[in-house]
Design a binder for these strands. Sequence first.
RNA 1: CGGGGUGUAGCGCAGUUUGGUAGCGCAACUGGUUUGGGACCAGUGGGCCGCGGGUUCAAAUCCUGCCACCCCGACCA
Length: 578
Amino acid sequence: MKLSQMHFKTLREVPTEAEIPSHILLLRAGMIKKTVAGVYTYMPMGWRTIRKIENIVREEMDAKGAEEIYTQSVQPAELWKESGRWDAYGPEMWRLKDRNDREFCLGPTAEEVFTDIVKSDVTSHRQLPRMLYQISDKYRDEARPRYGMMRSRVFIMKDNYSFDKDAAGLDESYDKMYDAYSKVFTRCGLNFRPVEADTGAIGGSNSHEFTALCEYGESEIAYCDHCDLAATVEKAACVDAAPQDDVEMLPLEKVYTPGTKTIDEVAAFLKLDKKQTIKALLFVTYDAEGNENGYVAVFIRGDRELNMTKLVNALNIPEYAIAFADEEKMSAATGCVGGFTGPMHLHDCKIIVDSELPGLKNLCAGACETDHHYINMNYGRDYKGDMIVDLKTLKEGDECPICGAPVRHARGVEVGQIFKLGTKYSEPMKAIYKDENQKDQLIWMGCYGIGISRTFQAIIDMPQNHDDNGIIWPMSVAPYHVIITQVKPGDEAQDEVAGRIYNELTKAGVEVLWDDRDERPGVKFKDADLIGIPVRITVGKRASEGVVEYKLRRDADKREKTVDEAIADAIEIVNKEK
RNA sequence: CGGGGUGUAGCGCAGUUUGGUAGCGCAACUGGUUUGGGACCAGUGGGCCGCGGGUUCAAAUCCUGCCACCCCGACCA
């Protein structure tokens, strides 16, 4: 393809909307354009890379026996009501009505549609297992779109669904996908790590997230250098402090603690370690219509951090159905007092106690009375919880829940996630097959997603895939393999040499971009670096002698080569790496 | 949804405090000189100053309502 004939434009200056390298470079390279917040257009060069990623995904899916289908984005509300997720999904779902007032959504995912398809076609154990996938736009009306395509409202996702006879079959499908995903992300040039993850709105029993390691990522993962621990921070279990069984309970005492509303203030005032205090966190919960339907008080050791995901899982409600409470409003109903709430004297309020508190003795907590705290508070004797559960966030340096070593944290971008759904969808939607004994059985399902557009962007954020001058595409996903930078189009010798290189490489299956624009050489070099084509062949002054310059985008050094050498070397490296 | 910020030419910005009818750089276009790392000279075109309402002889500028976008948080396969 001749660059002079392409719809191609690069930006010299950084657009204000972008902050992280991948977003800045994609915009500057003219590979994407924003349509509206969280919605992007893929320009020719960017779209080529998207298609390369998609094809890597297709190859790996097909290799595991999955078949591609295509379901359209508009999905009827009935299916979602059948699974129970029409209400559960919340404001993120993009809902719409047709002219007859029937309800639909733009698919944020497609468990319902796939389950519906399979249940009507599959009736016998002989038809299982099955694995179907698709690559399509997904719609999620994100509260805050961010970082270009890292968190957008419309994005390209590969989603597939496995249908098995039983749990063992599901395990097998899951393992296949785990393997396929590892291959996909390796081929895409990502530094990634599979980590255990929470199942969120999708549900199910077991899940791994594939996280591209990158400082700009929104996921935080916890891992351990000494054992296999690798989990999202939401998922990671936390080790309770050792129970103080041998410590004697001291008499409960109310103390005057004027103006000490925060844990830091109380601890300083009473000269206590924060580990001897209990922190209160107050929440209000909402029903499906968005009306308040209850209060929740969470108690956790003063130095700990609440893990919202664990709380929501314990309450078995969706995340959007809970929010920090207006303490003043709540005080009338429950007796809490802003800054001085403790687990005693509360009423009409669900009390949730972190799992390590019952084992700890003589703690300090609010007295539900302004300017007062209790000291020597003990579980069982002085207070009780309606629920006792691990609500702690595993922090960097905390004890590893598996081996006890200090835990490490890293940031990353979630590029894929796999779930064991079990019968979560087949049960409400009645996806049933007849087994060998002519008995009805539920189909066991798994679902597996890859954010194609997110992967596209995450690739660039890998440190090895960009530098100050632009993108450095891995060969496997580069929009073109080779760029011919012709210094002086119209020069007879250069035209001849560039044309020959173009033709021979193209014949060999190499994708070549020919920069034949009437621009100064500097502009072409800058653009070539910016768009990140892996191999550059510069046809310049010495073209008449049959000599060109050969340079890899990722290396600094350039080398003069004969035309034939350059062609041979380009073919070799492209075939090796593509 | 809470907090903060910004909307002026395709992109990046100044002008707003103190009202007087819009400017700079890049990009584009024309001509010329250039041609191996974002050239130079001369010239040209391009703006409902986010949108509505108000104050005023006069509004990019003051008042007011709305909208959009970005950042932090909340939230999120």
